[in-house]
Amino acid sequence: MDLRVLRYFLAVAQEKNITHAAKQLLISQPALSKQLADLEQELGTPLFVRGHRQITLTESGEYLRARAMELVDLADKTVANIATEQVIGGELSIGAGESVGMQRIMNITSDIMLDYPDVKIRLVSGNAEEIEAQLTKGILDFGVIMGERPLEQYNHLQLPEYDRWGIVMRKDDPLSRLEQIQPEDLKNRPLLVSEQAIQDHRFQSWWGNTGSAIPIVGTYTLIFNAKLLVKNNRIYLLTFEHLIEDSTSEALVFRPLKPEVTEPITVIWKKNTVQSKVAELFINRLKTNLKSLA
């Protein structure tokens, strides 16, 4: 298996038609069909279900597509960074959750892009586990994670900002009259909670015995769609402060938890890895930025 064949495979998976993919790749249809057949033989499993008008991926094909996209993206990024070795250029990839701390990261990134127009930015959203997995695979240069995590395998810098948990609700909700929200206030009130917070049992100690009386009606990974649900229904959203300050939140309000619950914000990157010039520049500028606060 080589990258060229993986690119062929991805083109067919995208087009769902070998003839269309062959035209896009500028090769003959028989040659492309043979490459796919050889790939299936090499892997020992069918990758496609060949229909009359289009083809679809088998379960093995779907798995290969996800892995192939990662490998091709990594190869393209590596080539781009090597090609710009003598200058600051290439791609800077940062994965992060939604957090107030991202403003500092985006300020530094914006300055780099202004100073070095050949730099391209790739932003990936995800929770801490997803970000760490992509760092390990070399898909991301940096991750920005919220909360206490094991950091032994990473280089890391902690930001001075922190995220404070609270409840987002409609402005006309009776709870909006409170300055802070205690566990008892949420009894019998439908609540949306971050998927990662549920997995980590983050609020088990905060709501204690009251937790059994708080109905968790759903989870979310990114906040935008969750805000829309809160806006349209009498549902409460457990999330970080400063994430509803946009045009979709005109009817919403944030109230912090009592007792207060906060999370540290940390920038992480792989140890023992040769960084591209643009990644080294990002690290140096972030360190300088943090030192200026000391």
Rank of each mutant, 00 (worst) to 15 (best):
P150Y: 10
I105P: 01
Q158R: 14
I121S: 06
H156W: 15
P117A: 13
I121D: 03
E152V: 11
I108F: 02
V119K: 04
Y154G: 08
E132P: 08
E130Y: 14
D163Y: 11
E152N: 12
M146S: 13
K171Q: 04
W165N: 10
I131N: 03
D141G: 02
G90V: 03
G143I: 00
Q158V: 12
K137S: 15
E91V: 10
I108G: 05
V168N: 01
G126E: 00
G147K: 13
F142D: 06
I145R: 05
L178K: 06
E161K: 01
D118M: 13
I167A: 02
R170M: 04
M102E: 04
K171G: 00
L135K: 01
L159H: 01
M169N: 02
D173R: 06
Q153L: 13
I94G: 00
D172M: 00
E91N: 10
L114N: 15
Q182I: 08
R149H: 14
L123R: 05
F142A: 09
I145A: 08
L159A: 02
M106I: 02
L159F: 02
D111A: 14
R122S: 08
Q134R: 15
Q158A: 12
G143L: 03
N107P: 10
P183M: 09
L157I: 11
L140Q: 01
D111P: 08
I139L: 14
G147I: 07
W165P: 07
V100W: 06
A133M: 12
V100Y: 11
G90D: 01
N155M: 04
D172P: 07
P117T: 09
Q180E: 08
M106A: 04
Y162D: 04
